[in-house]
């Protein structure tokens, strides 16, 4: 038992419990299928003590789903969860498109490892946008960053704050820039590309 207690002292575990606010934006006139792969909904990041001060485990999956649920519900006129691209293609009335986010990379730095003296978190999401027939329209990589000071908080609390800020950063980028993506404008919003000067 003592060994187990000593072992737990050498590991840090973070699960993101905070809710995410819905964006204050005008919804796009689109009916969109939302596909969450298991790799997103159950995402867990683990880093061994060899590169960090101790073992770190970050459970991001449920928070990913809450984040994108809040984001997509405001970004699009209507959304519906789908389990596969094939199921989405059978939808009646048809979707305008299907969107599927995934975590491409997760990294962090601890106060002792960075010049800022703060916990820093980087997350890169890939946002795959499909046409209603399942053809990939675009894979949009969204890189997000969050940082948090220690301010007397535990390392786990500072890490959670930095992760939440990084996730909000990703959601903010998608909320503001999704409709500006050239492929999205052309294929989903059916806007005619403007000639560059």
């Amino acid at each position: 038992m003592i060994l187990a207690l000593l072992g737990s002292g050498c590991a840090a575990s973070v699960a993101i419990e905070r809710p995410f606010p819905p964006p204050l934006i005008e919804p796009l006139p689109l009916r969109v299928g939302v596909l969450y792969a298991d790799s997103l909904a159950n995402y867990v990041y683990h880093e061994e003590a060899a590169t960090a001060d101790r073992d770190w485990t970050v459970q991001l999956g449920p928070a990913n789903v809450r984040l994108f649920d809040a984001l997509f519900a405001s970004l699009f006129r209507e959304t519906k969860r789908v389990s596969t691209l094939e199921a989405a293609a059978q939808e009646v009335p048809p979707f305008d498109g299907v969107i599927s986010p995934s975590v491409d990379a997760f990294e962090f730095s601890l106060p002792g490892q960075a010049a800022t003296g703060q916990v820093g978190v980087w997350i890169r999401y890939n946002l795959d946008v499909y046409a209603r027939d399942g053809q990939l329209i675009v894979r949009w990589p969204v890189t997000a960053y969050g940082q948090s000071g220690t301010d007397g908080a535990s390392d786990e609390e500072s890490m959670e704050r930095a992760i939440v800020l990084a996730m909000r950063d990703a959601a903010a980028t998608i909320a503001v820039d999704f409709a500006r993506q050239p492929k999205v404008r052309e294929s989903l919003l059916h806007e005619t590309p403007t000639a560059s000067p």
């Binding site: 964006p23 934006i25 800020l165 903010a172 503001v176």
Partner: peptide, 24 residues
């Protein structure tokens, strides 16, 4: 949200009219 996040917050008071004109 998302208008006062570190990346999206207005950089100067001159950006206020554009921000305040956004829906809601």
């Amino acid at each position: 949200f998302p208008w006062f996040e570190p990346r999206t917050a207005p950089q100067s008071a001159e950006a206020l009219p554009e921000l305040l004109a956004r829906p809601g």
